[in-house]
Write a protein that binds this DNA or RNA. Structure first.
Length: 262
DNA sequence: ATGGCCATCGCGGATGGA
C-alpha cells in the first residue's frame, strides 16, 4: 500500500502532471491515497471525471484562488470531514476520510497548514491558533481511529536537518521554536515522522524556492510530512521524496512524499 | 549583486506563497 502527499500549487495548471505521476507510480505499485494541497480552485471546477477515468475516486474541499485540499484514492472514502470541526475557518485547509472498514480501516487526514508569513504577524497568530485546534482534533480522531495518517504541507521543519541554511534561516518562518513545538505536540500524541523511520540522504528536502535556482542548488526545506500512528509504524517499509516531478517543465515548487506500508 | 519566481485575478500590478 502506498500513500502520498503533494502540494501541487494550482491543480488547474498541474492536473496533467498529477495524472502522469500517478501513472508512473502505478508502473511499480499504484498510489492508494494521494493528498493534494493548494488546489486553488472551487469545488465546481474540481476535475473529478479526469481522476475517475484514471481509476481514482476523489473528495475535494476547495476555494477560489487560494488553498484547497483533496484526497485521491483507489478505495471509496467514507466519514468525510472538511476542515477542523469546531474551528471557524474561511480557508479550506483540511480534508479527512476513512478507507476500508472494521479493525483494518485507515483514517487519512490531508492538511495544508498555514504558511504564517513571519513571526509576530497576524498570519503567524492564525497559524498558532490553527495548530492548537488541529492538535485537539487529531487527539480525538486517534481515539476513534487507531490507524491514522496525518499528511500534507505542514509549513514547519522539524529541526536544522530539514533546512538548507539553518544558520541563515534561524527563527524565520517554518523554523521557529513556536512552530516546532506544535509539531512536537503532534508527535507527542503518539505519531511518528515516517521519513525519519528510515535512513535518508543528507539534505533531503520537499520544497525548493522557485527563485535563486533553489532546486538546482538544493536550497530547500523539508516541510511536507507524513505522520503515522503507532499501529502503522511496524507496517511502514519505505518513505521517500520523489524529486522527479520537480524537474518537469512548469513544476510545482514542492515534490511528492511517498510512504509504503507493508 | 541581500534579489532573482510563480499563480491568481484580470489586463496592471497587488497579493500570497515559503
Amino acid at each position: 500500500m502506498k500513500l502520498a502527499t503533494w502540494n501541487i500549487n494550482s491543480l488547474g495548471v498541474r492536473l496533467p502532471q498529477v495524472l502522469a505521476w500517478l501513472d508512473t507510480q502505478a508502473q511499480t505499485e499504484p498510489i492508494d491515497v494521494l493528498a493534494l494541497q493548494e488546489l486553488k480552485l472551487t469545488d465546481e471546477k474540481f476535475p473529478h471525471s479526469a481522476f475517475a477515468e484514471a481509476g481514482y475516486q476523489t473528495v475535494a474541499f476547495g476555494q477560489k484562488t487560494y488553498n484547497g485540499v483533496a484526497l485521491v484514492s483507489r478505495l471509496t472514502p467514507t466519514e468525510v470531514v472538511r476542515n477542523i470541526p469546531g474551528f471557524e475557518d474561511e480557508q479550506s485547509r483540511v480534508i479527512a476520510a476513512t478507507y476500508g472498514d472494521g479493525e483494518d480501516r485507515l483514517r487519512v487526514i490531508g492538511a495544508y497548514f498555514p504558511n504564517g508569513q513571519a513571526p509576530g504577524s497576524d498570519k503567524f497568530a492564525y497559524k498558532m491558533r490553527w495548530l492548537t485546534a488541529l492538535h485537539a482534533w487529531v487527539a480525538s480522531e486517534l481515539e476513534h481511529h487507531p490507524r491514522l495518517v496525518l499528511m500534507g504541507d505542514y509549513n514547519i521543519t522539524f529541526d536544522d536537518a530539514d533546512v538548507w541554511d539553518p544558520d541563515g534561516l534561524r527563527d524565520t518562518i517554518h523554523c521557529t521554536r513556536e512552530e516546532r513545538a506544535h509539531l512536537q505536540a503532534l508527535i507527542a500524541l503518539g505519531l511518528h515522522d515516517a521519513h525519519r523511520l528510515f535512513p535518508q540522504p543528507p539534505k533531503t528536502f520537499s520544497w525548493w524556492d522557485y527563485r535563486m535556482l533553489g532546486f538546482q542548488k538544493n536550497r530547500g526545506m523539508r516541510i511536507d510530512h507524513i505522520l503515522i500512528s503507532e499501529p502503522l509504524k511496524p507496517l511502514a517499509s519505505a518513505c521517500v521524496v520523489d524529486r522527479a516531478p520537480r524537474k518537469n517543465p512548469q513544476p510545482s515548487d514542492h515534490a511528492p512524499v511517498v510512504l509504503t506500508l507493508g
